[in-house]
Nucleic acid binder design. Structure first.
Lengths: 338, 338
DNA sequence: CGGCGGGCCTGAATCGATTCAGGTCGTCGC
DNA sequence: GCGACGACCTGAATCGATTCAGGCCCGCCG
């Protein structure tokens, strides 16, 4: 038996379809009495609104798309949780796309999102999709960039001051008396990596410490970090760093593993600081100091910017929220704490 | 300017709307010549199919819903990746719901999914939603249970043999000569926990070792594991276990942290084995042995079962795929490996 | 040469919620 | 008593892709 529709509800409640719709969407316009009759009918028939029909008429869906780089990176899932928690308040749902840093896949998802006329899109872009995003917006789906501050101010965005984060990390190590810092990072073309390194360079230069020993890895995962650390351990004793600043926590975990394996003491022999402050850095065998990015808040703020644009589509002032990173000190730099 | 629709395309290509639709959906029925004209028109107008209209007509969306317990648990994101990778082949998208183990939130998402007439649903249920799931199926959205083998065979499901996993873990520790094993687990009401403990009990009994020392925690996260381990360390020396079997890897990480902090050697003083084989267990300071659950494959298989049911809705044989867990040996039990 | 089949195309009807111009009735102010 | 107004309700028109009964034309068979 086909699912009940507004017409069935209207018939049972003895009102017109228009009234049913008013109960559903603008309950103020309907007398309490009638409204109750309609609600009873809905209940009795097990009526569930057909979102497709609503969407067709209204011209837009009530779902928001989110495209992330990597669902298995806790940094992004934390953002996603922020998005999801915020969206729940608007009772909108989330269509998830995982580009996996693959531009082709990103495009495929953009097609899907466009067919679905998503109400809005949160994206950390991979490929050159600027034009596509503009088209999406022209067609009524606002876009907010996450963890990317587009040079142009064409879209609202949320991001974190990575330069400052790098500066904080290096300064902390310097404050602890370390003088020979290695930066173990991902590919330089990743803007974040370059900026974190840059901030660290600044701190080192400012203090007149030894210039940063920069190691470029080809990925930002733990195994790359482990290999990087092994390289460092092969250096002659007088060049061996006394502290490692890892471009993210996954790398830091790999570094910790290699050092532990080599029998070195952390932080006594070599201190480690990471970036992102993921759960697994805080809960490592030796909890790892890190630069915290407020990922949940980023998700929430991005969602709020998006919702504002969705609900007030004509306002053309794109906002750029830049979060400040925060130093979190743990045993991997400060030794056993109280 | 409003987005182009099939009528515009038809006009430009000099054909009827029916033909445009045929090009889009059944290209075989159209002469290559006409098809090309239509495709050109689509290109020229930047036409993008309106999914809502299609959905309204066809009665079902092309989107699949997935409801997970916790997006920040790598076990679930690995499953989600399997789902997503598989779905991409069918060019369908994924609506994500995160119940956070909260039954109310789960219900809210079920409402949304139902309004959207999702093509199907993958779910690890929290509350008692059996009736809701049946209704969803009656209305044309098949359901597959993930990591839950419903007593009834009312839905297809994928799950893992947790009893066997527990057995494998304990056997491994016994093989290494450990005789006093502690099980550090989550709440007993979680079926998985009970079964893993049960399997371990069996192994211990079979070998005549000391009965399992069972510690029940109120969560399954790392901090609970740490507290649990601290409790174990307070035991008198002759009762202190020589091996810990943690109900999942998060707990194992917490245990590792507490033991490391107390200056104990792993595995020499106490061996540790976890469960799930998440990335962060493999990459811990001392890589943790674990019972691997094939999460990506579970996601894929669940999706395949679901797609089969979507495409062949009348076949009423619900399948239950039970995966076998696998022992992964690392340093936390076997010591430094080659 | 008539009839039949198949390939290709047409276009009105359809899905179901929302919208909005318009109708009805009761109340209030003067 | 009358016009104005507001509160409440009605129902046809609408959104855009899909479907399907039916039309046209060509080639082939008997």
């Amino acid at each position: 038996m086909a699912t009940a529709n507004v017409r069935d509800v209207a018939a049972l409640a003895g009102v017109s379809v228009g009234t049913v719709s008013n109960v559903l969407n603008r309950s103020k316009r309907v007398s309490p009495d009638t409204a109750q009759r309609v609600l009873d009918a809905i209940e009795k028939l097990g009526f569930i609104r057909n979102d497709a029909a609503r969407q067709l008429r209204v011209g837009q869906s009530r779902t928001v798309g989110i495209m992330v780089l990597d669902v298995s990176n806790p940094f992004f899932t934390d953002i996603a949780r922020g998005v999801e928690d915020t969206l729940a308040q608007f009772s909108r749902s989330l269509v998830l796309g995982n580009s996996g840093e693959d531009a082709a896949r990103e495009l495929a998802y953009l097609d899907l999102f466009e067919e679905q006329r998503v109400a809005g899109l949160l994206i950390t872009p991979v490929g050159d999709v600027h034009a596509r995003l503009e088209r999406l917006r022209e067609r009524g789906s606002p876009v907010v960039l996450v963890d990317r501050h587009e040079n142009a101010r064409a879209f609202s965005s949320v991001s974190v001051d990575d330069n400052r984060g790098g500066y904080l990390a290096a300064s902390h190590l310097l404050d602890l008396g370390r003088r020979n810092i290695a930066f173990v990072g991902g590919p330089k073309r990743v803007l974040q990596v370059a900026q974190r390194a840059g901030g660290a360079q600044d701190a080192v230069a400012e203090r007149g410490a030894r210039p940063l020993h920069v190691l470029e890895l080809d990925s930002m995962r733990a195994d790359a970090g482990r290999l990087g650390a092994e390289q460092l351990l092969e250096l002659p004793a007088h060049e061996r760093p006394d502290a490692v600043f890892a471009a993210n926590d996954l790398i830091a975990l790999g570094v910790l593993r290699a050092l532990t394996h080599a029998g070195l003491r952390v932080p006594d022999d070599i201190a480690i600081i990471g970036y992102d402050d993921i759960y697994f850095a805080a809960n490592a065998a030796i909890p790892i100091s890190s630069i915290r990015q407020p990922s949940w808040e980023m998700g929430r703020t991005a969602t709020e910017l998006l919702m504002a644009e969705i609900e007030e589509p004509t306002k053309h002032d794109y906002r750029h929220v830049v979060f400040q990173p925060e130093l979190i000190v743990r045993e991997s730099t400060a030794g056993a704490l109280a």
